[in-house]
Design a protein around this nucleic acid. Structure first.
Lengths: 188, 188, 188, 188
DNA sequence: AATGAATGAGTCTTCATTCAT
DNA sequence: AATGAATGAAGACTCATTCAT
């Protein structure tokens, strides 16, 4: 596999296991099964892997949303799928998501964040637009609303995954609460 | 000023300037104008300053909310004040809020997070409870809703302060969007 | 152009720009526009390029002296030409001359130094011999004197080129002083 | 002893033993009997010790000259003492002198070179001035002549110490040749 | 309680060298 | 002969932590 890809995947794993602070580049290369020096052919530092991880995470979320939603479904079902997707990917990247976030803001990469999230926002916005056009939900600025929805869902997911030792029941209650919250927020 | 206090304030500044990763204890003590060794009289490590920062931030938010809200106001006005407070404190702590968040999660301090946020959540929950009891808003689990509301407001605020060079107009539009979103989410 | 030649020329440039210590083989090959591995087909190490550079430099100096001096000229004019030649080539190789010098001495290539300078010394010595034989200058050991003369001229040149931002006036004064110094040193 | 001093002395020894290229900072600190990190409290890099060494060397030479010369001696004896001093110190710092020289030029410290040599030049110039005033030697620009004299003496010394395995006889012949050369160069 | 020079283990980072193409 | 991606040993450098003052 492509070395760059290997590094990113390994970094995600290692960051998750040890946290950013405690992660050594030597850990990453060990997991990626490449030589120490090879890392520096692709990334200049530990933190510079962050944008690449964020990109993967956002892409994953965008894809998860797009794939799980079917055109013929009710909008509330579609919204539910959306929330499920956000929860799933957030779970997958748990700890890491926050770390990535702070890893980005700690560097000069903040600007890239928006760029990275753009496709995700766009996909969600287009669904919301569709709902509004069909009169299912109230008129809003779909782009702004998309950001709010994703922000809310992520925040809800993080509250579950970050602070509670995993608890499927709690996870479901949180999903439901978020769903209900957003449904009410959007319905006409 | 009290040395502990000086350290916390200095840490906030330095974390903001350099990010957690790149912040050295020597940076903090330099900014705090104390000796290297003195740091250890108050904190055992760089990250252990985090809970103290988070505490300050959450307390300020809680206080800002409590102080800006008056009992006789309409619930939507109260909600608006709430959002204003969240935006104000998030702005004040901008980047740092994320850093604190991940700084906490990177260590064993995660548990403290909930403890720290509890008063804030409680205050907001009590307002929501009030609204629900008065029939202004629909019945929910006030505690869970409080978390969703704060999570949404923080997320909305971060989107403004982190990525856009400051823009008062945009800030207002974002506040308004969040307000409207939550009003619809909560109204009966 | 011949790759070996390209490497030598590139090395001179890079050594001058960065100094020996900071020069990487990767810098040399980049400047020479050849592949990293190609370097090793011609030289076993960075420092082993030194003798080749020194050789070029000494050869140029020797040639410059031989070509600029005409048999029928007065000995003082011949000496002046000699000094001019040393100054010209030293300027051309400025800093590098010192670097080469120390680059050679830093390794086991020291022995080669004398070998390399031998033709230059020999040429100068033969002129001095000629002057002495003709009774123009006092009797000395021509070989030893040749080394002193070249050493003095080089040292004088380095003082001009290394430390002063270029200054034609100063250059001339220095040449003149060196000339006068040597004339007095040699005249009967 | 002062740590900075310890580092400089150790560096001279180690540079001499291994050459600059092969010298590790760990070697220097080992010889200086200080911790690795302590080095960086005084010098930012290996090469930045160079100016300090050069300073010591120049100071040593200046002092050796000043101390070995007595006012009542003949000027030729004084000159001889001068040459002896240059030879002695050059021998003491042999290899190192060239390395220091190139170490300086390899960095941005070239400018410092003149600053460092200034006292030495000044001392020699004042002797030459004295000789000229007393009518012992011909009128010149004493400062420029001082540089030529030192340059010649150093160059002569290096030719002995750098390339020949030590040979007392050769050393004396070289000293004598240099002395005679300069005497002729300066006498009226 | 406060200091800050000194420490050295722990990492990062470089870069000469190799080797499959 | 030429290439240049990959290697990993070697060293540079950092920085949390200590402790004598």
């Amino acid at each position: 596999m492509d070395k760059r890809e290997r590094i990113i995947l390994a970094a995600v794993e290692v960051f998750r296991e040890n946290g950013i602070e405690k992660t050594k580049i030597s850990d990453i290369v060990k997991k990626a099964q490449i030589a120490q020096g090879t890392f520096y052919l692709y990334f200049p530092s530990k933190l510079s892997v962050m944008p690449a991880i964020a990109e993967k995470m956002a892409a994953r979320m965008e894809e998860a949303i797009r794939q799980s939603i079917k055109a013929e479904q009710q909008w509330t079902i579609q919204l539910q799928q959306m929330i499920n997707a956000v929860f799933t990917v957030t779970a997958e990247y748990r700890d890491v998501s926050t770390l990535v976030y702070s890893g980005l803001s700690a560097t000069e990469h903040v600007r890239e964040w928006e760029e990275i999230y753009k496709p995700l926002y766009k996909t969600v916005a287009s669904f919301i637009e569709e709902w509004e056009r069909a009169g299912k939900t109230r008129k809003t600025d779909p782009n702004r609303t998309a950001k709010l929805v994703i922000g809310l869902a992520e925040s809800a997911a993080e509250q579950v995954y970050l602070f509670n030792s995993f608890d499927a029941e709690e996870e479901n209650r949180q999903k439901e609460a978020a769903l209900e919250f957003i449904i009410h927020a959007l319905q006409p």
